[in-house]
């Protein structure tokens, strides 16, 4: 049962009602259950931010690292214990901003890690500041007149190496999300899953959404599956691009 992989005694979680992280955790637990991953053969490394708390709710050894430092920790764990499945779960701010240098170099070195990025396009825990993935012109508490810059291009950053695995999905597309996580866990190298999710409390409401449900419907309307065999995902396409 996937529920055996959750520390239900620590529920309710710290996350706001309507947050997307819980859905990512459920899908991850389902994939782990399917693949026989548990506390004897798997560890979860998470970073600082709302997403970072995920490792504390899973029934495996978990490490809540410093802000931005998941990848150096995870890479070392994998090097010392190659038999262990090492899964990194963190937010877009943690992975792409404060941990950006590590992301670029970890992708280049291509260690066998699965990275799930909760991409809610905002710094949620600290109150809704613009992040590295905030779309240009989006109003946030730190960009009241709209974000000044284009967001970081995660797909092309990950694809810069000779070998790569980049998946994009959303919390609305649950089966697609689960499939991306499963494929990423099975991928023998650095596998990055970019998961668009909703932060209703510190981002969505400011953008005019009345509920997390409305944000999910927005994901359904906006994101379409990429055509079979696509080598590049267009901005609002979900799918997997990889090269082994």
């Amino acid at each position: 049962m996937f529920k055996d992989l959750l520390k239900l005694e620590r529920f309710p979680t710290t996350w706001c009602p309507g947050c997307g992280i819980g859905q990512i955790m459920i899908q991850l637990a389902m994939v782990m259950d399917e693949l026989g991953l548990n506390y004897t053969n798997c560890t979860i490394i998470s970073g600082v931010g709302c997403t970072g708390r995920l490792a504390g709710y899973m029934n495996v050894d978990g490490v809540y690292t410093l802000h931005g430092r998941t990848l150096p920790v995870a890479e070392a764990v994998k090097l010392v214990t190659p038999s262990l499945k090492v899964i990194v779960v963190s937010g877009d701010g943690d992975l792409a901003s404060i941990g950006g240098n590590h992301l670029f170099h970890a992708a280049r070195r291509n260690p066998d890690l699965t990275v799930l990025c909760n991409n809610n396009q905002v710094y949620g825990l600290t109150g809704g500041q613009a992040g590295p993935t905030t779309p240009r012109d989006t109003p946030t508490v730190s960009s009241p007149a709209g974000a000044h810059y284009d967001p970081v291009d995660l797909q092309n950053l990950i694809k810069a190496g000779a070998k790569y695995f980049y998946a994009k999905t959303t919390v609305y597309h649950q089966l697609h999300l689960r499939n991306c996580v499963r494929e990423a866990v099975a991928w023998p190298g650095f596998a990055f899953v970019d998961i668009i999710s909703q932060c209703i409390e510190n981002n969505g409401r400011r953008l005019g959404f009345n509920s997390a449900y409305e944000m999910l419907l927005h994901f359904r309307k906006t994101y379409k599956r990429a055509p079979e065999g696509a080598e590049t995902l267009e901005p609002y396409e979900i799918g997997i691009v990889r090269q082994g």
Binding site: G68, R69, A76, V77, L79, V80, N101
Partner: peptide, 26 residues
């Protein structure tokens, strides 16, 4: 004996922490 030449000292200091958690003397 495992060795990583890190991208910076932040990575190095965190890598020895990960290695220690994984059971190494780092």
């Amino acid at each position: 004996f495992k060795f990583i030449q890190s991208e910076d000292e932040l990575a190095a200091a965190n890598a020895i922490i990960g290695a220690s958690l994984a059971g190494a003397k780092s």
